[in-house]
Design a protein around this nucleic acid. Structure first.
Lengths: 109, 109
DNA sequence: CTGTTCTTCAACCATAAGGTTGAGTATCGC
DNA sequence: GCGATACTCAACCTTATGGTTGAAGAACAG
C-alpha cells in the first residue's frame, strides 16, 4: 500500500535535478557525501542538505564509516512512487487502447 | 527519451496531495476546474492555480467548453516520470536479486 | 598533539510555493 | 439586458526551498 504522505516527500525530493543526479550516481553503487557533491557545482554544505532531503524522503540510507557518511539507494520508496504513477500511466494506456480498438471497429464497418 | 527539464516540473507537480487528487479524479474521466476543486477544501482560485501547475508540467490538457475549462489527463508526461523511476527501481531489484542468488550459493557450500 | 579531511550546523538571503481575498471577464439562462 | 455561473488575475501574506558562508565536531595521518 502506497502511503499518501510518503509521496509528498518522495516526489518533492525527486523534483530537484541535483538530487536526481545523486540518485543516478547511487544506482552505480554506494557513495560518500563528498563524492556525490563533487560533480554538482555547489558547496559541500549545500550538497549535504540535498542528501538530507533524500534521506527524509526515505530514498537513501546512510551508514557511517570512519568520518565518511556512506549513502545507498533505498529502492522501496522509489517503487512506491513508481507504483503510484504506474496506476495512472497504465490506466491511460488502457483507455487509449480501447479508443484505438473502437476506431478499428468503426473502420471495419 | 526522458527530458531532464520536464522531470523538474513533473515531480514538483506530483509532490502536492491536492494535485495528485486532481489527477486521480481525472483518471476517471475529464472534469471541469470546479468539479476538481469541489472536494478540496480550498478556494476556487487556489484550485485554479493547482490546475495551472499541472498544465505547465504537461500532465493535463485543457479545452474550453462554454464557460467551463475541461481538463484531461496527459499520459505522456506521466510515463516520462514513471520511466525515469523504473530505471532505478528496476536496477535495485536486479541488484537485490543478484545478492540473494549470491547468498544462496554461499548457503549451498 | 597537530593539522587535515569529511561532514554537519547555524545564520542568513533571495526566490518560489501554497494559500487567501477582491475584482474582472466570458458565457449561460431567462 | 440582467443576474448567476465558471473561471482567471493581481495583490498580498506566510512558510518552504535552494543556496551561501563561517564555525565546529570527529576521525584519520604523521
Amino acid at each position: 500500500m502506497v502511503e499518501e504522505q510518503h509521496l509528498d516527500a518522495i516526489f518533492q525530493a525527486l523534483s530537484d535535478p541535483s538530487r536526481r543526479r545523486m540518485l543516478a550516481a547511487l544506482s552505480a553503487g554506494e557513495a560518500s557525501v563528498s563524492s556525490l557533491a563533487a560533480p554538482l557545482d555547489m558547496s559541500l554544505a549545500g550538497a549535504s542538505k540535498h542528501v538530507q532531503v533524500l534521506e527524509r524522503a526515505g530514498l537513501v540510507s546512510r551508514r557511517k564509516v570512519g568520518r565518511q557518511q556512506i549513502l545507498a539507494l533505498e529502492a522501496k520508496r522509489l517503487r512506491e512512487a513508481r507504483d503510484w504513477l504506474e496506476r495512472y500511466a497504465r490506466f491511460w494506456a488502457d483507455a487509449l487502447d480501447a479508443l484505438e480498438t473502437a476506431l478499428e471497429e468503426e473502420t471495419k464497418r
